[in-house]
Design a protein around this nucleic acid. Structure first.
Length: 396
RNA sequence: GGGGGGAUGUCCGAGUGGUUAAAGGAGACGGGCUGUAAACCCGUUGGCUCUGCCUACGCAGGUUCGAAUCCUGCUCCCCCCA
């Protein structure tokens, strides 16, 4: 398969048509690397699977010898990208942005190759802190009508929701990033299409060859419908423990498996396999990518023990029973403390039969139990929250 | 500068003097079913020293036996006209 076709395999769209193949050709002829750009939003430091879709694509470019240029949007973060937002974003402090950018960078290496020949990290504060006259020149590149073409602006405009002047500048600033680093290709999610295309206009206005844009489909979250995002709470983080990643993936609706296999570029047993086995393969693949094969197998075993055999895990965190032996323990208080819930919540759990001791449901009216009856036993809330109770403060 | 609309529980959103801890929905949590699928069904969803008490409807004060609901001031947000 030609490199361009390969790169476009699971992509959403690349514009202009055939542009990528041409860029690759020219680069090969001139014996140079393509400069492949990705803008990062330093307001969301925790990378999840959704982010890795684009990172994975960048990795493919790296594997072909091209140079990835990550742009940390420290300066544009002051503006706030309105993409997919119905309202303006809060402004972050400089220190927060720095810290977030560093975290992001570190996590991005779970996917990208950290090779100075293949990776360049820049901050757009380097060039966007420009005199007003230069900003005017940039602002002349596009018209208000053009900017309002953008999907979310158009929607907000129609719905009479506020659009700040500052926000309308964002696409131009992002486009200027492309000029500053002489981008050949820019990647992004489909929600970035407008911004990426405008980058071409900006480059043209500044007398530069226009970049090719490549958009990747949006990965659905573990709810199977919404875009994966931390704020929706439907994400799987790359730094999450193996068990969490495995369990969350297993909760994915069947319909979403195709998208996950394709976009995450994981080996797919195919639809011949039973949905259950296929999802297990998916979960293993996810965990293996970030924690390794051994961890993936171990996670699957623990998953089976917990949810298939309903066994109490052997590595349960212990929780100290504070009263002296013989004294009564107030169960709602214990549950509240051990699992970080309110006492009212704990009472409800008891009433609904959601509390178990060593696998036995605790009677709903058992509010006080002697410590001696609890010592050494495993307290369970719901299906997957456990604490081993240990008497005496010394055990803490 | 002028005019109008709005701020309710995690979110959305009803409610314009009294049986309102506040309809409905979403989300979340617990249970059932199961492949921990999803979907679906049932229940719960402010806190606590829990047959009761406390706190809550932007903030502060007032009217009233009684206010999320009325009045006054303040803060913030949105829209329209100029």
């Amino acid at each position: 398969m030609a490199p361009a076709d390969d790169l476009l395999r699971n992509a959403h769209q690349s514009l202009p048509e055939g542009g990528l193949a041409k860029k690759l050709e020219v680069a090969a002829k001139e014996g140079r690397q393509l400069r492949v750009k990705l803008g990062l939003d330093p307001t969301a430091p925790d990378i999840h699977l959704g982010h890795t879709v684009v990172l994975q694509k960048l990795r493919e470019f790296q594997d072909l010898g091209h140079r990835v240029v990550l742009i940390v949007g420290d300066y544009t973060a002051r503006v706030g990208d309105p993409s997919g937002r119905s309202s303006t974003r809060p402004v972050l402090s400089g220190e927060q942005i720095d810290a977030n950018a560093e975290t992001y960078r570190r996590q991005a290496f779970t996917v990208l190759r950290d090779d100075p020949e293949l990776l360049e990290v820049r901050r757009n504060g380097e060039w966007l802190d420009m005199p007003a006259a230069d900003l005017f020149a940039l602002a002349r590149v596009a018209t208000v009508a053009q900017i309002l073409e953008r999907d979310d602006f158009a929607k907000r405009f129609a719905a009479r929701q506020p659009i700040s002047v500052l926000e309308t500048l964002y696409p131009l600033l992002q486009g200027y990033d492309s000029v500053a680093i002489a981008s050949d290709v820019e990647l992004g999610g489909t929600d970035q299409t407008f911004n990426l295309l405008l980058g071409r206009d900006v480059q043209r206005a500044y007398g530069q060859p226009e970049q090719v844009i490549l958009t990747m489909p949006i990965l659905p979250g573990i709810d199977g419908t919404e875009k994966m995002s931390k704020s929706l709470g439907n994400h799987v983080g790359v730094t999450e423990p193996a068990d969490e990643q495995f369990g969350k993936t297993m909760r994915l609706p069947d319909d979403a498996m195709d998208a996950w296999f394709s976009l995450l570029s994981l080996p797919d047993p195919g639809t011949d396999a039973s949905p259950r086995d296929r999802k297990r393969a998916l979960a293993r693949g996810v965990v293996a990518r970030f924690h390794g094969d051994d961890a993936a197998r171990a996670a699957e075993q623990r998953f089976d023990a917990l949810f298939v055999s309903h066994a109490v895990p052997d590595d349960v965190e212990s929780f100290p029973l504070s009263p002296a032996p013989g004294e009564a323990v107030h169960l709602p208080a214990l549950i509240a403390e051990a699992f970080g819930r309110s006492r009212s919540d704990a009472r409800r759990l008891l009433e609904q039969g959601g509390v178990k001791l060593d696998g036995e449901v605790v009677a709903s009216d058992a509010y006080d139990l002697p410590a001696s009856e609890l010592d050494g036993r495993v307290l369970q809330v719901g299906k997957r929250h456990f604490r081993r109770l240990v008497a005496g403060p010394s055990a803490a």
